[in-house]
Structures are given as C-alpha cells and as structure tokens.
Design a protein around this nucleic acid. Structure first.
Length: 476
RNA sequence: GGCUCGUUGGUGAAGUGGCUUAACACAGCGCCCUUUCACGGCGUCAUUCACGGGUUCGAAUCCCGUACGAGUCACCA
C-alpha cells in the first residue's frame, strides 16, 4: 500500500485560526495514525492579500499546538520541493501550456467589469451566475489580444459530464458539468488560481488524502475534471463540517463573539495540549466515552470514519472545562509559570513577596480555567475597597453576624502572630465563646473579609490577606 | 435562483433496522463530602430523534416529499 501523505495548505493571508487549526489537526492525526507524512505547503497565490509573517505565524502556532510537519518550506524533501506555490510557477505554466495545446483551456480577454455586469444580469434573471463564452465577440478578442492585453486562462468545462466521488465523510456526491462555468486556471497576472494549483501540487507531491472544510465541496468537481484531463489519479477526499458560532453561521474572521485565532488562546493562558484535545473533538468523536486524551492517545484512536457530518458549534464552556482539567494536571511549577505573568501584569505586586504570590496562585489551581482568568478573580487581595453583593448583604444581616464580628475581631487583635495555626485558633475561639458554628460562623467571616460568599479556603484567605487587612475589613 | 450538504435535549454529541422506554460530556438544578468556599462524588434534566407520508413483524436508523438551516456559484483560498 502507498504511504499516506496528507497536507495542510494555508494561504498566508492571516494567522492560524480555529478552522485552519482543526483542518491541520485532522490531517495530522490521520497521517500519524497511519504512519504517514503530514506536509505543510503554502498557497500564496493571492499576492495582494498575503501578509508579512503569514507563513511563520502559521508554522509557529501549529508548533505551539504540537503539530510539527514532516515536510515544509523549512524542511523540504528534494523530490517534492519547493513548497510555496509562488515558487512553483514554472511547473504550473508547463501544465497550462499542455492544457491549451490539448484544447482543454483557452485565453479569455473579458474585463472584470464585463464579467461583473454579466453576473449581475444573470442574477437579475434569477439564473445561476456562470461564465458566458459569448460575452465578447471573436473580433473583439482578437483586437484586445493585438493591443497587448494580458488574458486569463480558462478551463473549457466538458459538456454533459457527471463528476462523482466518494467522500470519506459524506459518501457519494455528484455534480453535473452543466452547472459549472468555464473557470479561470491562470489569472491575467500569470499566477494560477487555487483550484488549478492545488491539483498540480497534490498530484506532484503524491498526496493521497485530502481533508478539508466543507466549503470546498463545490470546488471538488472542478478539480476532478482536471485530474481526468491530465490522466492523473485523484486523491481521496473528505469534507469536514464547518465550525459555526452560536448563530449557526460559519465562523467568520470578523466574528467577535468567539476568539478566532490560536494565538489569542495562547495569549490568554490556555494550554496547548488542551487546545489540541478540544480541537480534536470539534467535528469528531471517539468511540469510547472519555473525552480527555493525550496527543499520542488521539493519534492512536483517531478514525476518520467517525468524523461528523453536521456542523460543530464552537462551545466556549467546553473549552474552559477541558483547559481546567489540564490545569489541574499541571505540576505546581508549570502552573505558576503559566499563570503568574497574568497576575503580575494586572495587579500591583511590587510589595508582595514571591512566596506570597505563589501561595495565592496555588489557592486557585483547582478552579481556574485559563491563565488570564486570574485577573479579576483575586481582587480581594489587592483592592482595599470591597463591594458586597446582594447575597452578602443577607449574610451580614443574619442576627448572629454582629456577634461573630465583634468576637472574631477581639480574637484577631489579641493574637500574637499570624499563621495558619493562629488563625484556626481564632476561629475556634469565636465558636467556643459565642456558640455559633458552621455556616453561620464561617460564611459570616468569609463575607466580611472578602465581600463574596465564594472563594478559596478561608484560613488561607485570611493568612494571605494579612492581619492588618482583616482588621480593617472587620471595621472600626 | 441553481447546485451541494445538513437537521437527535439549553449545548457538544453517541447511535448505520430489533441490545435504545436514545450513551457520554458541558452547562443548569438538587443532594452528599468539607464546621464555610472550592475541588470531588451522587442524582435529575429528550416517552423522543424538524415535519408529513411510505417500506418493514419492527425505524432516530431505509425511501419519498415538505419545512428550516448552511455552504457554494470570484482573475479569494
């Protein structure tokens, strides 16, 4: 059997976003599961929209996720290089000439304005917009050619053909050639279009399987006709579900309800292994009931048959939950390293000791979902003013609360030191002297010193708050 | 508008003709644990699989139609 070769081929028009990352991930998992190769190739034919660092950014973010290509522009394999489409122009050109020679392609001298007008005309008539071979007359074409106008090259779509393929995810899909207009394979600037270049590249790079987004399904017949004209074997296709937002619309880069880019998750203190895990569950489900898997385990159990057909909604809560699971598994060192920068960046920590900061952070390790979440979570340790919400007011109004307050204050004032042991004894003393215990006691103290009925362990909280602050908050 | 794909609970989803009076997970709610909080544990949450027909002894699962949603129809990828 042929070695499995798959590819992720982004255009460097932006940074790695969720959809791209997932496409890369599934290709990667499929390849690794079958001991194949995962290739990174650049589809940089849209020169105008390419951004600086686009390639590096894609590669960096991929590698942050733990997806390392076996071949890329940075580690090419000689027989397949180069890996950037703009460096493969001569290859496409030769094929283009061949197609023209064989009568499969021709020069087109229509202007963008004419094409646009034609499209609008067809739409107004309720027709599917499609290229019209008779848009301009033969004489006009010749005149334009002689005036030195650069043509685009269009593929002559065969008549009455049915293009059929077996999609690994969707099963049999077929398109009729009559619904497809002659399409541009080489733009007038001499650069091939995606649908043309992708076929040439997939073939010459021995790509065996193509996992891509559903938005490409209607591109497939265009590519199939090229394989047929050129007499090449086609790869297997698998069209994955779209990722949609809460409105069930395809995730667009402008969507602000969801962070689109992998780098944003990195910047907010998410864990790469957790993202990897989460992404794998976006449109795919394992046979077993667990949902937390290591990188290696995912490679082992990945099965393309289990890719979903219906759109997957990006569930932010699920991501948070998965990330929290990974957070708990982190060693204390790694945890501190991940979260501390977010703490220091947001709060004034200049008069706090390293040890104090560490203890504080560790208090939240079990409940925190991602690094940046620490911001706002620990306000009570940094802000002098505390606000009491409605539930807290209720606690403050318990008839036992004033007693707890006075007695606890007395215990704290008379305590000689401020350590865990002392604090526990203070609380115990209050219980002994007032007879108040349980929630009436603990919750009252918690609310008085923190302004919230939720928070970390009370003793630890009091300890880190410090004796002075505790007394201040107990009032006068 | 044409073509293509999809439609299971608040959400992600399993399910490919009988084992399903629909798994698992997130969120919610309730209880337990902890003298409070968090973590954790347990329980509860679709008599029903968009709707209408049909095939079958039997359908979420197969067929047809309808509705709704999405993708795509670029010298973008």
């Amino acid at each position: 059997m042929k070695k499995i070769r798959v590819r992720y081929a982004p255009s460097p028009t932006g940074h790695l976003h969720i959809g791209g990352a997932r496409t890369a991930l599934f290709n990667y998992l499929y390849a690794k599961h079958h001991n194949g190769d995962f290739i990174f190739r650049l589809e940089d034919t849209d020169i105008e929209r390419n951004i600086e660092n686009g390639e590096a950014s894609q590669l960096d973010n991929l590698s942050w996720l733990g997806i390392i290509p076996d071949e890329s522009p940075l580690n090419p394999k000689e027989q397949y290089a180069p890996y950037r489409q703009t460096e493969r122009l001569a290859i496409y050109n030769a094929i283009k000439e061949q197609l023209i020679q064989e009568g499969h392609a021709y020069e087109c001298y229509c202007t963008p304005e004419e094409l646009q007008a034609e499209r609008e005309r067809q739409e107004a008539l309720g027709l599917a917009p499609m290229y019209n071979r008779e848009l301009i007359s033969e004489d006009e074409k010749l005149a334009r050619k002689n005036s030195g106008m650069k043509p685009s090259i269009r593929l002559k779509v065969p008549e009455n053909k049915v293009y059929e393929f077996k999609d690994l995810i969707r099963g049999d899909v077929k398109f009729e050639s009559k619904d497809i207009g002659d399409w541009v394979i080489v733009k007038s600037n001499g650069i091939p279009t995606y649908n043309f270049a992708v076929v040439v590249d997939d073939h010459s790079m021995d790509i065996t399987h193509v996992f891509r987004g559903e938005e490409h399904i209607s591109n497939t017949p265009k590519q199939l006709m090229l394989y047929e004209m050129l007499g090449w074997d086609k790869p297997e296709f698998a069209h994955m579900t779209l990722i949609v937002n809460e409105e069930r619309k395809k995730l667009s880069k402008r969507d602000e309800t969801i962070m689109q880019f992998i780098s944003q998750y990195k910047d907010e203190g998410y864990i790469p292994e957790a993202m990897f895990n989460f992404l794998a569950l976006l449109g795919w489900s394992p046979e077993v009931e667990e949902e937390i898997f290591t990188h290696e385990k995912l490679i082992e159990i990945f099965d393309a048959e289990r890719l979903s057909k219906s759109p997957s909604m990006f569930d932010k809560n699920k991501l948070k939950w998965i990330n929290n699971r990974y957070m708990k598994e982190l060693s204390e060192d790694k945890y501190l390293k991940l979260v501390k920068p977010f703490l220091v960046e947001y709060y004034d920590c200049s008069n706090k000791s390293e040890n104090w900061l560490n203890l504080l952070l560790l208090l939240y390790k079990e409940q925190i979902s991602y690094g940046k979440e620490i911001q706002g979570l620990v306000d009570i340790f940094f802000n002098d003013e505390i606000k009491y919400n409605e539930n807290c007011v209720e606690v403050l109004n318990w008839e036992t609360t004033p007693q707890v307050k006075e007695n606890f204050k007395k215990q704290v004032v008379t305590s000689e030191s401020w350590d865990e042991e002392t604090i526990k004894n203070c609380v115990k003393a209050v219980q002994k002297e007032t007879g108040i215990k349980g929630k009436q006691l603990f919750m009252a103290i918690r609310v008085m010193v923190s302004g919230s009925e939720h928070g970390p362990d009370l003793t630890q909280t009091l300890l880190l708050l410090g004796k002075e602050t505790v007394l201040n908050r107990l009032g006068e």
